[in-house]
Each structure stands twice: as structure tokens, then as C-alpha cells.
Design a protein around this nucleic acid. Structure first.
Lengths: 162, 162
DNA sequence: GTCCCTATACTCGGATAGCAAGTGTCCGAGTATAGGCGG
DNA sequence: CCGCCTATACTCGGACACTTGCTATCCGAGTATAGGGAC
């Protein structure tokens, strides 16, 4: 089990985008250089966020990405589903229907016990991610980050948007 | 994010092994043919369970696998960690330490907010899996399965162990 | 009849190929901007 | 001086190679068993 690295990148990008004032946008190249990650590949994940409707794109010369809705209306779960895909981590292959003890398909009305147990765990996982929003990440970050780092980030942002 | 298919197989194997009476064992080949999965590959995952101490191996002619401890002492989380590996799904690459707003490593005392959010969700996930045991899976399965299927399984097991 | 020995057949265990998905990169289509030109 | 037009430079979007890890398989080392022989 492994979560795509792009999820982490996307979340950090959304945190940064939350600091961009209305009417401005950040290009994929800028987001990449701020985070020190390969630009073209980050663009791929930003496109996924765009398809999912989490960020809006602004075309043209001073274009780029901006949040499509308020930061407290974007949950971490939304980001995970957008970047990593909506497929659940555990997929039941119904192996109980194979082998010498198999029965006709009509005999299997309910999920198998293994599937139920995994589904319960995934619900708990999703719930935890759904109740955390990008706005929460921002406030958590502001609470713990060193003033020095925040100042540098703000200066970079101001200079880049100018 | 995708969980190895072997996790499902391993759980079903443990459920079946829970039905094996004391003093007997089931070979990997038998477990594979009961579940209709490729034998040599299943063996690989059974070895992982063996390394983790969840199942005990019996060598020799009438050998095979049996549970290493009581079914209510084996949690689903144990199985996931044994088969899928102990590495957490989300790995923080500390991208906040890169780019123009980076600071010396000493400035980063706490986990970043993204990392904390993912860690919370994974804790909820692990907790849900830890409180479900193989014994629970067995009783759930017995509750819902059709009598016909249970009879066939019991017959197969009796015939195989004889 | 009982015990011991040997050969056997079966078991697990790790090392070895094949394949799919994630990772990383590139170039083309489209658009807001900036400058130049005409009125 | 103001408005319009054109060329430009920048943006996103999807299509193309590469690497890592999961999937699938095989053969070798080790052991309890079953049979045969000796006492």
C-alpha cells in the first residue's frame, strides 16, 4: 500500500494557493520551484485537481492556478480522490466464489466478512480525511511554523505575483 | 493507493486455518486449490505470515501451515503489516524544507500539517483493523454464509485432512 | 513380534522472470497581454 | 491623445518514454513418514 507522492505535492500547493489574493494566479512552474519538485510532473497532478474542480485555471499570459472554492470547502479527502483516483485501496476479488466450496452467484447476498472489515477501516480513514480541510492545514501550519520561514514565503509570493 | 491482493488471500487462508483441528496442518497447495488461486504465489505470502509469526510451519510429509496462536489473538492489522509490509502508506518527503522559503533543518521541530493530517487518518485506519480479529471474521462468516457452502467446505476439509 | 534403519515423497524457503502502474518528460493548442499603428 | 489590431510570449492540456514494485513462477534444502530388514 502506497499513496502517490503527488498527493503530498498537491496538498502543499493548495496551502500555498490559499495564500494567493483574489484576482491573482500561480503558474505550475512557480508552484514547482517554490516546493523544489520537477515542474512538468507537478503540472500533471495540478491537471487532476483541475479536472476534479478543486482548482480553477486561468489561461493566458498572467494565468495559472487558483482555488476554485474557499479553502474550508476543500477537504483532504477531495484531494486524495482527485490525485490518487477514486478506486478504493482494497478490492474484494470474491475468492469465496471459487474453489470446491463454491456456490451459484445467487447464494452470495452480502459482502464477505473480510470485505466488511476492510470497508469499515476505509470508512474510518475517509472520515478522518473528510473532516480536515485545506483551511485547517493552513491554520495548523501558521501555528507551528517559524516566523522566519513565513516571512520568506510571503516575500517570495509578493515578488512572484508582482 | 492499492492494497496488495495477497492481503485478501492471506485473510481467507487464516479463516480456513482457524477451522483446522489441533494437530493437523494444511499445505500451501491445498490452501491454493480451495481458494482457486495460483499455488506458488500464495506460498510467497504464506511465507510472509510465517516470518511474522502469525502461522507456524510443519515440515515433512504431512506438514503444512497452522495458526501460530489463537484466532482471537491475530488481528487484521497484523496480517496487513505482515503481507503488505510495515511501511506507512503516506511518506512525508519534507518538501517544506526545499525551495526559496527553506530554513536550516533545526527550524523544523514538529511534523508538517499535511503529515499530521495523514497520520491521524492512518491511526483511525489502523485502529479499526486492530480491533478486528480473525476470530471475528470467522464468526461473521458463519453468521451469514449459506449452510450449503459451509457443509461443502467442511466436507472438503475433512477429506483433505484424512 | 518388535525395533531400527534407509529410501522416499512431500513440505517449506528463497532466488528468478514478466508485467502493470506510477514517475518523469516533452511538445502542441489556446489565450490574455503588450506594443505598434492608424484615426 | 485614444482606440483598434496584430504579434508575441506565456499559460494549460494531453500524448510519449522510463523505472520501481507487484505479480507469477521455478527449483533447491530439509524433514516426517512409510516400508523393509534384522534381531
Amino acid at each position: 500500500m502506497k499513496i502517490s507522492e503527488g498527493v503530498e505535492w498537491a496538498l502543499h500547493c493548495l496551502i500555498l494557493l490559499a495564500a494567493v489574493p483574489e484576482g491573482h494566479a500561480l503558474a505550475a512552474t512557480r508552484l514547482a520551484e517554490f516546493h523544489g519538485v520537477p515542474g512538468p510532473y507537478l503540472a500533471k497532478h495540478l491537471q487532476a485537481l483541475s479536472r476534479a474542480g478543486l482548482v480553477a485555471t486561468v489561461a493566458g499570459r498572467r494565468g495559472g492556478y487558483r482555488l476554485a472554492r474557499a479553502a474550508d470547502q476543500i477537504s483532504v479527502l477531495d484531494v486524495l480522490l482527485a490525485v490518487d483516483g477514486p478506486a478504493p485501496p482494497f478490492t474484494c476479488t470474491e475468492i469465496r466464489r471459487r474453489g470446491p466450496a463454491a456456490l451459484p452467484d445467487a447464494a452470495y447476498r452480502t459482502m464477505c466478512s473480510v470485505h466488511r472489515a476492510m470497508a469499515r477501516a476505509e470508512s474510518a480513514y475517509s472520515a478522518a480525511l473528510a473532516e480536515t480541510t485545506v483551511a485547517d492545514l493552513v491554520s495548523d501550519m501558521l501555528k507551528d511554523a517559524s516566523p522566519e520561514g513565513l516571512i520568506r514565503g510571503a516575500q517570495w509570493l509578493q515578488q512572484t505575483l508582482a
